[in-house]
Design a protein around this nucleic acid. Structure first.
Length: 1030
RNA sequence: GGGCGAUUAGCUCAGCGGUAGAGCGCUUCGUUCACAUCGAAGAUGUCAGCGGUUCAAAUCCGUUAUCGCCCACCA
């Protein structure tokens, strides 16, 4: 059977992938030795909406290398695959598709129908990336493919895993331990998706912006002496002012100001602290007054030193407002438009004014300080109008603008509004790209401060190691300054929060006024009349309605009878609950039948942050909360390979959550790789159009070439830069080893033989080289130096096996060493396939099958363990001499211009014993590779060029071709270079301090090197002398 | 404003105490029984600057410059 000249990656890859799949080659524990240690990796789950990008290709190639390597070494190996439900992204994709098809939108069809559509979409398109990963060669146990939404209510057949159970169980447990809480807080709100997002999902970007300066007039026309001083206390400005100057980049938020704050030590404003000033916007007749307060937050050296405080729309202001008991006036709705709900402006302003005067006005959520003419406008539209209004009123801070007419020289003075154009940092939603609005909303939070400790300790103590180490610092810094994690999302696709609410009926003893433990008609009437609407809520978390009903029964057990036996029922929302409860009461009132009484509860409509479920990935994919055998065998997992961009999103949270939930670290080692960039080092992005599609590269050059390329560029802590040229070069490497095999095959070499113990020095030498590369490869992989493993194998296969061993073998196949050379080559190539397999699984699997009758596929091949014991120092020394001699002859020939086809004699003018032995053993090899006739003793003569090797000198008669001048120039140049190197070594050795301090080994090495150089120099000098004597 | 990283051949990058390497590109030569997706030979570096530690520095320390990235609430 003759092999083709090239490996046909396209057809072979599909076929081989099919064979692996058919034989369950990647199943958990496949190829494990009895009693083997386990090695497990969980895949960073790609989004169901995803398709394979170059970052996935790198990430999964590196994982696959570790996994295949361990599997071949006989570990009990599991690579756990799966996908992430990606709440926002998926909901967005499905909604977009619905819009394209001109179907009714999600609100029109309702939650349940929409979720069905998402599941349908997932079933149809969700496998895309899995198939792509298979094309890459990822050896995951695909039978275990997990999904973060599996087992959720409404999941169709085929999605009945239990990930949902894990998520819900963790939520309930953390809730009941007080690690998860609900609260009305200022959160990052995405007005596009109309949901809260966590601080990590906010991208702060610098954009061109403006800063406006406005005057807030003092109440009642009061004035004060405004004095500015320089550093030495000299007065630089003194004027009487009736206002305080305020700067803002967001004038529309002035409507919601609750105070103006200055620093307590700021002498400029000391006279007016405690006074009221007027917000210069809003209907003239209802201008609001707000107090001037002190707080540590304002920086006296920045701007005017006075800050307007809008507690409901700015995180800093929120802090100031909370400290100083300033009301938080919300101005916008979920879409980022000015509110239209709540009280009229007039009523609202009245309440706010009372608050400004120190009165406790209670809950202000109904207060809407947006003037009627601005209500419903987009926030940016409202900004324009606010600016216009203030400016029209002359309350913008102005400066004197001087213009000189060119022709006449006349000066024009004009007052202009002070508006600074400057770059400002603005928060954007990482998925929506719109400006994030801080909004006061009810959300769920993980109290991260309570669970962060163990996650920090585990890395500090080395229980989990993060590589490269520089990332540990980043990890520490983030965790040490961690903020509460907002986990509720106002979306539909996700794990619905397992919390139910009910009306709080037990407040302040209102229910049972006469404390008789029973509900009389008067009290029932009171309950109904006093507005159930205004009652607050109680809530419980549980894994389902049955469980939560139990908890509510406990809660209402203390109510007066017969309320305490009301039936707990589930309704859609609060309004429905009020209605149902009222109805029940009314029925009871009529019939006195206590079974008519119901206690309605409704479930929180929000879903959990996708990362909350991803945070449970290690245990969740292994079957937790069931105590599965896989959990016992593979948890904690061995290594996590991931990109630095999700260290916070994912890695840190997995650390916290696994430790909080099961008390152990999720993985022993985290290897963080870089971001693949284009060949110029730029980030790949669609807008730049420099995105490299890994599938195109696979089509073009094969998966092995792509994998090898990514691996060889994966130096720790660096960003790989990828261009098609690189992949092409490595495709050539695939071709190279393919053709080395083809050569072997043509010479009767077969694989599958036991390790031979050859006699010939060439065979002994290549085995020694192989032993070295085996040790180096393992060492590199053990320390995650993937690039060293790849480049080392490349250099060995191409630079040693193909360039030299294959060439040396040609004469050997014709002689008495034919058989041992066949055996050696077969065995050496087998080892090459084996060691390359983790990086290049397809071509090696193919070659493995082509070259022998194999008991098993290479994917389950045995990783070699041999090492230094196979190194034959004498063979090594001799072959290095032979190679050096061949190189020297080739070099001399090329420089003198001896035609490639010419075959001159090789005259040995002088040689020591070792050189003679090497010549005798390797004559035919040298003849062939240096293209010379068999070596024979003789003397230097005219028309010859000379060549030296350690311990020997040679002459090559090249007849009339010789140009004496050129030959002496060549020799002189060679002497000069060698002599220069020798001089350096001599200098070192003659330095007494070097000899005193340096390691003995280093000194010895230096001496040997010098001796070799000196031998070389003297031989070339001799040749030069002879040349000149002729 | 903090933190991290980079600066090495024309290009993209390894190396991280013993005197510079790879791939691509370039020059010359080559139909020698594996491979032109190839072979042979070659050219090309004050290892960013300055200072220090050391017998010895691309490699360790300090500093400057330039370029990246991450984090951060300056109105």
């Amino acid at each position: 059977m003759a092999m083709e000249k090239n490996f046909d990656a396209n057809t072979a890859e599909a076929r081989i992938a099919g064979e692996w799949a058919a034989s369950d080659a990647f199943a958990a524990g496949a190829n494990a030795k009895p009693g083997a240690e386990s090695f497990s990796v969980v895949i960073p789950p790609p989004n169901v909406t995803g398709s394979l990008h170059i970052g996935h290709a790198l990430n999964n190639t590196l994982q696959d290398i570790l996994v295949r390597w361990h599997r071949m070494r006989g570990f009990d190996t599991l690579w756990q695959p799966g996908q992430d439900h990606a709440g926002i992204a998926t909901q967005m994709v499905v909604e977009r598709q619905m819009a394209q098809r001109q179907e009714p939108n999600r609100r029109e069809i309702g939650r349940e129908a929409f979720l069905q559509k998402v599941w349908a979409w997932k079933q149809e398109s969700g496998d895309t990336i899995i198939e792509q990963l298979k094309r890459l060669g990822a050896s995951c146990d695909w039978s275990r493919n997990a999904f973060t939404m599996s087992g959720a209510p409404g999941a169709p057949a085929g999605e009945e895993g239990n990930f949902h159970d894990a998520v819900i169980k963790v939520f309930v447990e953390m809730h009941d331990k007080g690690l998860i809480y609900r609260g009305k807080r200022l959160v990052n709100w995405d007005p596009h998706f109309e949901t809260a997002i966590s601080d990590l999902e906010v991208e702060n970007r610098e954009v061109p912006g403006h800063m406006w300066h406005f005057k807030y007039p003092l109440a009642g026309g009061a004035t004060y002496e405004y004095v500015e001083r320089d550093e030495d206390g000299n007065v630089t400005l003194r004027e009487t002012r009736d206002y305080i100057s305020i700067a803002t980049t967001r004038p529309e938020t002035m409507l919601g100001d609750g105070a103006v704050a200055v620093h307590p030590d700021d002498a400029r404003y000391a006279p007016i602290v405690g006074q009221l000033c007027e917000i210069p916007v809003g209907p003239k007749q209802h201008r609001r007054l707000i107090p001037i307060i002190t707080d540590e937050y304002p920086d006296p050296d920045f701007g005017s030193g006075a800050v307007k405080i809008t507690g409901a729309h700015d995180f800093n202001d929120y802090g100031v407002a909370m400290r100083n008991n300033i009301p938080l006036y919300a101005l916008m709705d979920g879409k980022g438009a000015m509110r239209q709900d709540g009280l009229s402006y007039e009523e609202s302003a009245e309440i706010a004014t009372r608050a400004a005067n120190g009165e406790d006005v209670g809950d202000v959520s109904n207060v809407n300080l947006v003037p009627e003419e601005l209500r419903g406008l987009d926030r940016f539209e409202a900004r324009k109008l606010v600016i216009e209004q203030i400016s029209a009123e002359g309350l913008a801070v102005t400066y004197l603008h001087k213009e000189i007419e060119k022709e006449t020289g006349a000066e024009h003075l004009e007052r202009r509004a002070l508006v600074e154009s400057k770059p400002i940092m603005q928060p954007f939603g990482d998925r929506s790209g719109v400006v994030i609005e801080p909004m006061l909303t009810d959300q769920w939070f993980v109290d991260t401060a309570k669970i962060v400790g163990p996650a920090l300790d585990a890395v500090r103590s080395g229980q989990t190691k993060i590589l490269p180490e520089q990332h540990e610092k980043v990890y520490f810094h983030w965790l040490e300054n961690i903020e509460p994690w907002t986990i509720s999302r106002q979306l539909w696709w996700g794990h619905q929060i397992p919390v139910w609410y009910g009306l709080n009926l037990s407040l302040e003893g209102q229910v049972d006024d006469d404390h008789d433990g029973a509900l009389d008609d008067v009290e029932i009437f009171a309950l109904l009349e006093e507005g159930l609407v205004h009652r607050d809520e109680i809530h419980h978390a549980a894994s389902g309605f049955a469980d939560v009903a139990e908890k509510f029964r406990d809660s209402i057990a203390g109510l007066p009878q017969p309320l305490e036996i009301a039936r707990v029922i589930e309704v859609a929302n609060r309004e429905a609950a009020v209605d149902a409860f009222a109805q029940g009461l009314a029925d009871y009132n009529l019939t006195q039948d206590p079974t008519k009484l119901v206690y309605p509860v409704w479930r929180d409509p929000d879903v959990l942050d996708t990362w909350f479920s991803s945070g449970l990935w290690p245990i969740g994919t292994l079957g937790w909360p069931e105590q599965t055998p896989e959990l016992a065998r593979y948890f904690p997992t061995s290594t996590l390979i991931t990109g630095f961009d999700i260290i916070f999103f994912w890695v840190a949270r997995m650390m916290m959550m696994q430790l909080a939930v099961v008390g152990d670290v999720p993985f022993r080692t985290v290897y963080v790789h870089g971001l693949v960039r284009d060949e110029k080092g730029a980030k790949m992005s669609k807008s730049k159009g420099n995105v490299i599609d890994p599938l195109t590269l696979i089509d073009q050059f094969g998966a092995d070439a792509l994998r090898f390329t990514l691996t060889s560029m994966a130096a720790m802590g660096r960003d790989p830069k990828l261009g098609p040229k690189h992949v092409e070069a490595n495709r050539n490497f695939v071709t190279k080893i393919w053709n080395a095999t083809r050569f072997a095959e043509m010479n009767g070499v077969r694989g599958g033989v036991a390790r031979p113990e050859p006699k010939h020095v060439v065979n002994r030498w290549i085995i020694a080289e192989l032993a070295r590369i085996r040790m180096a490869t393992d060492e590199a992989l053990e320390s995650y130096r993937f690039n060293d493993a790849a480049t080392g194998l490349y250099a060995f296969v191409w630079g040693k096996v193909c360039d030299w061993y294959v060439e040396f073998s040609k004469p050997l196949f014709d002689g008495e060493h034919r058989e041992e050379t066949q055996a050696t080559m077969g065995w050496v190539l087998d080892q090459c396939y084996t060691m390359l397999h983790p990086i290049m699984p397809f071509v090696t699997e193919e070659l493995w099958a082509l070259t022998g009758d194999r008991p098993k596929m290479l994917v389950h091949g045995d990783w070699p363990e041999f090492g230094a014991e196979l190194i034959d120092a004498e063979a090594d020394r001799q072959m290095n001499w032979v190679i050096a001699l061949i190189e020297n002859i080739r070099s001399a020939r090329a420089q003198i211009g001896v035609p490639a086809g010419a075959r001159p004699d090789l005259i040995v003018t002088e040689a020591d014993e070792a050189a003679r032995a090497a010549l005798a053993a390797n004559g035919p090899l040298i003849e062939r590779l240096a293209r010379v006739n068999p070596p024979a003793d003789g003397a230097m003569g005219p028309g010859m060029i000379s060549v030296a090797a350690l311990g020997a000198s040679f002459a090559l008669p090249v007849g009339e071709m010789i140009d004496v001048k050129a030959e002496s120039a060549r020799l002189e140049k060679s002497v000069a270079k060698t002599e220069k190197d020798a001089q350096g070594l001599r200098g070192r050795l003659s330095n007494p301090k070097f000899v005193e301090n340096a390691e003995a080994e280093v000194i010895e090495e230096t001496r040997e090197k010098l001796a070799a150089l000196e031998d070389d120099v003297s031989r070339i000098r001799a040749a030069l002398a002879q040349l000149q004597a002729m």
